[in-house]
Design a protein around this nucleic acid. Structure first.
Lengths: 200, 200
DNA sequence: CTGAAAAGTTGCAGACTCTGAAACTTCACC
DNA sequence: GGTGAAGTTTCAGAGTCTGCAACTTTTCAG
C-alpha cells in the first residue's frame, strides 16, 4: 500500500469510499497519461478499479472531474485561509500568502501533481479547469477579498489576476519537471504583479 | 432579411454558409437565454434554423461553441494586432492597446454581446471558455509577447494576467448592462495592473 | 448550355457521456 | 442478530458527437 492518505479516524465505510475515489483518480490519471483523453472511456476507468461505470458517476460528475481530483480545493478551505490573514494586509499580499500555502500543498503531493499537470498539458481542453477561471472557487475568494477591499470590481480583479498568475507559476514549474521550488516561482510572479509587471 | 452581416464579395455559396452559421448562433443564444443551457438540445437549435442536427455539427464541434461564436477571435487577428504595436512599447501596454481594440469590437456588437454575457453568467460552466484561459489564443498571444519580452516565463505571466483582467472588465460591464463604456473599464483595470494592484 | 468537380446537407448507425429509478448488498449501530 | 442508512449495480433512456455514404446544390470550364 503506497497510499498514505489521511484515513485516520474513519469507519470502514468511509475508508472504502475514499479508497475507491482515489483509486478512480489514479486510474484515470494513469490511463489518460498513457493513451490520451479521447482514448479512455469512463468504462475503462471504472473497469480498472473494478466498479461499474454508474459508480464512477456517483463519485465524479464527469470524466474530467476525476482527473482534476482534489485540484480545486474547497471554497471553504481557501476562504478560511484567506480569513486567517490579518485584515490590514493588502488584498494582493493576502492572496500571495494563500497561494503560497496552496503551493506547499502541491509540493507535498509532488509526483501526483506533476503527472496531473503533464496530462493537462497534453490535453489542453482540461487547462481551463485548472484553477478554474470564473468558477465557484474564484467567486468565493473574490467574495472573501471584497471584505477587505470593497472598492467596486477590485476584489474580482485582484482575485482573477492572482489566480491567473498562480496558474502560470504552476505550469512553469511543471514544464521544468518540478525542478525549482514552486513556492519560489509563486513568489516571483507575485513580486512582478506587485511591481506593476514592468518589462524585465 | 434583417441580417446585415458583412456579406460583401462572397459567392452565393459562402453567403448562405455565413447566413446559416450566424442563424445558428442567434438561435442558440436566444433559446439558451430563454430556457437555460440544459433545456436546449442541439436538435432544438438546428430545428429553429430548419437544418438537420448533423448540419449543426458541421458548423460547430459542440453546443457550447455555437454560443461562443466569434468570441474567441482568431489567434491570427490578435497576433497581428500585437505585432502592430511598436516593439519599444512595454508588454503590458501592448496588451492594453490590443485589448482596447477588442473592447471596441465588442461595443460595436453591443446587444449581441450583452446577451451572450448574460447567458454566460446564467450558465457558469461556459465562463471558462470566455477569453479562454490556457487555450490556443492565450498561447498565441504569449508567443507574440515573448518576442518583445523574452525573460523566462514573463510573457506567459503578463498575457495570462492581462486576459484575466480583461475578463473581469467585461463581466463588470455586463453586470451593469453595458452602462459604462467598456473601453473605460478596460483602461481602469490596466491602470490598476500597472500600479501593482494596490488596495484602492 | 452542359457536364463534371467541389462543396454542402442529410440520414443513419454507432460509440460515448450522463441521469433517474429500482433492486440489491454492505455496513453501522442498537 | 436485526434494522435502517448508505453504497453499488443494473437497466432504460436521453443527449452529444463522429464517420460514412447518399444526395443536392453551386461553381466553373469548355
Amino acid at each position: 500500500m503506497t497510499i498514505v492518505d489521511s484515513s485516520d479516524e474513519l469507519g470502514r465505510r468511509d475508508r472504502k469510499k475514499l479508497e475507491t475515489r482515489t483509486a478512480l483518480e489514479r486510474a484515470a490519471l494513469r490511463l489518460v497519461a498513457e493513451r490520451g483523453l479521447a482514448k479512455v472511456t469512463v468504462e475503462d476507468i471504472a473497469g480498472a478499479v473494478d466498479v461499474s461505470s454508474r459508480t464512477f458517476f456517483n463519485y465524479f460528475p464527469s470524466k474530467e472531474d476525476a482527473l482534476i481530483g482534489r485540484s480545486r480545493m474547497d471554497e471553504d478551505e481557501l476562504r478560511d485561509r484567506l480569513a486567517a490573514v490579518p485584515s490590514d494586509v493588502p488584498a494582493l499580499e493576502a492572496l500571495r500568502l494563500t497561494m503560497l500555502d496552496v503551493a506547499e500543498d502541491i509540493q507535498e503531493r509532488r509526483e501526483q501533481w506533476l503527472l496531473r499537470l503533464k496530462v493537462f498539458e497534453q490535453n489542453p481542453s482540461l487547462l481551463p479547469r485548472l484553477v478554474a477561471g470564473g468558477s465557484q472557487t474564484e467567486r468565493a475568494m473574490a467574495t472573501a477579498i471584497a471584505e477587505r477591499a470593497p472598492a467596486a470590481g477590485f476584489a474580482e480583479l485582484v482575485t482573477a489576476v492572482a489566480l491567473a498568475a498562480f496558474r502560470t507559476a504552476v505550469l512553469r514549474w511543471s514544464s521544468q519537471d518540478g525542478g525549482p521550488e514552486l513556492t519560489g516561482l509563486v513568489d516571483e510572479v507575485f513580486d512582478r504583479l506587485a511591481a506593476g509587471l514592468p518589462n524585465p
